[in-house]
Every structure is written in C-alpha cells, then in structure tokens.
Simulated assay, not measured.
Amino acid sequence: MADLSLFSNEQIAALLSALPDPAFILTRSGRYAAIFGGTDSRYYHDGSSLVGKSISDVLNQEKAAWFQAQIAIALAARGLHVVEYPLAGDDVKGVGADGPVETIWFEGRVQPLEYQVMGEDAVLWVASNITASKKLEALLRMQSETDALTGLANRRKLMSGLTEHFELFARYKTPTSVLIFDIDHFKGINDEYGHLAGDKAITTTAQVCQRELRAADFPARLGGDEFVVLMPHTDADHAMKISERLRLKIAEALLELGTLGKGATISGGLSEMIAGDTSYEEVLKRADDALYLAKRNGRNRIVRHRAN
C-alpha cells in the first residue's frame, strides 16, 4: 500500500486525473458522484459532465437497471465484482448520430467503498475498453467453428448444433430433420480433373447450400465431399422437398462449371428425430444408412429413412 502522506492533495488529484481508464464513484441509487481519469483518448470521451447525474439520466431504462443491479451485487458481496458488458449507441440517451457506430465492450471492476458518498453506500467502478480483445475472441471462435475451404460450419460447430437441437427435440418434441449427402463419383473427379477441380466442386456445392437453404437451416461440411444439413422445425415430409430442390440446384451448378465432364450430382440420406432416440448420433446413423441406399440404388437421389 502506498504511503499517501508522501503526496500532496494536488498531486493525488493529478494522479487520479492521469488514469488512462475512467474511474467512476457511483452511489447505490446510481448517481455519478465523481469521475477520475479516462485520459486515453483512443477509447474515451470527457465524462466530467456526468457528475451529479443519475445513471437513468444517461442510459436507457434496461441498461440503467443492469448497472444498478451490478452496484447492488458488489455492495452485498463487500468485495471486488468484475463484469463484462457492451454499450451501443442506442443504449446512451441523447447521443443520436454522434454515438458509436459499433458496439463497444468494457470490463468493469466494481469495488465497494468503506465510506458513504453523498449520504449513500458507494462503489468505485473502473471501466476498461476491451473491444479489441472481444473482436479477436470472436474471430478466433469463428475460425475454430468454420470450414476454411467452404465457409460453412465445420464438424465441431455441427456437433454443437446437433446437440442443441436434439435437446430441444427431447424437451419440446420440436420436429427436426437431418440430411447427409456427398458428391457422386468425387474420387473420379479428383483423379481425372485434379484436386483443384475437386475443391471447386466442394465450394460450389457449399455456395448452393448458402443460397438455396432457408435462414434457419444449418449446413455444414462434415469432411471431404460430405455435407450435413440440419433442418430445425422441419418434419421429414417437408425436409424431403427441401432436399430434392437442393439436389437439383447443386447438379445444375456443378454442370455449369464445365470442368467436370458431364457434370456431377449428389446422393443423400434423410432422417428425422423420433421418439426413442437417445442422442443425435442415432439420427445421423439413420441418415448415413439412407445415404448408403441412395448410392446402392444408382446415385443422384435422396433416400428417406422411414422408421419401422
């Protein structure tokens, strides 16, 4: 602990004013009693005009209520309370077009004070701009969940989505269908036309999925030339119509490439989550079995697995 007797009041005030991050003294009722620091002009504006105002004067009702709740939590805990929170332009009253274009993220370190301020319990709230680290975190998360070649969800993200929707099905019996498909004779494409042609077939297939499927559908690249489409809130009858349309559109797009001889087609297997399933793996297994039947029955078709 620093010996403050070594510093004059003026020096202490100067030290507080020099803090790069802003430090707010906030009362239990949400009044700004004092503001120190915030000198890093890359991230912060002069907040001196806030002194004397209430949080509800500055922020919209929902956000103001959240801040007051965090103050109450810190005071009840009687110790440091750390939170992360976003602030967007429409969270702040009166800024209009002058507000931030994008959401800004902060880490708040909220420490109860041992004395009252303006007749109320109070906290010291130090706010640090963490937008850059949040953007990096989002980028790394996206990269970890996205297939580099196609831009679709990768296997890891697919399994997460299947888990989530299976839990919804198990709880609410929400109809959900799963399509597995791959490109017919894909090895022959690679062998005859080269791996670049194979990659082009894969990326073209992915682009058709992104263009033709509904916003709620979840296409993913399982690996190689194999794809999975998760169709939430969709029974097998409806999913079959979607799958057939996708099959035809992919065949058209691959034919238009003009580099795959007579073109290429897809074969797929379709299954629906059913009562008695204990995991999404059972749904995938049925869809994979149906894909095998589609291959055996001549390819260029979607086969629906029908429960016994």
Rank of each mutant, 00 (worst) to 15 (best):
V229S: 05
E256L: 12
T265E: 03
G276Q: 06
S267Y: 03
H165Y: 10
Q70Y: 06
A307I: 14
F181Q: 00
F227P: 02
V228Y: 04
M159Q: 11
P22C: 02
G269I: 01
D91G: 11
D46R: 00
Y32M: 04
G99M: 09
T205H: 02
L158G: 01
L230V: 07
K173A: 11
A76L: 13
D237A: 14
R28I: 07
T203A: 07
V229L: 08
A148M: 15
S29K: 12
N300T: 03
V123E: 06
A287W: 03
F24D: 01
L270K: 00
R286D: 04
M159W: 09
T174L: 12
L293H: 12
G119E: 10
L196N: 13
K173G: 12
A64W: 06
L168E: 09
H238C: 09
S267K: 05
S160P: 07
L50S: 06
L179N: 05
S41A: 13
E281H: 08
L179M: 11
R211D: 15
K200W: 11
V178N: 03
L230H: 02
R78M: 08
V228W: 03
V82D: 08
L248S: 15
F186L: 00
R141A: 12
K173D: 12
D217E: 12
E281L: 08
G52Q: 05
H238P: 00
D3P: 01
A69W: 11
S56C: 13
P232F: 01
S267H: 03
L4I: 03
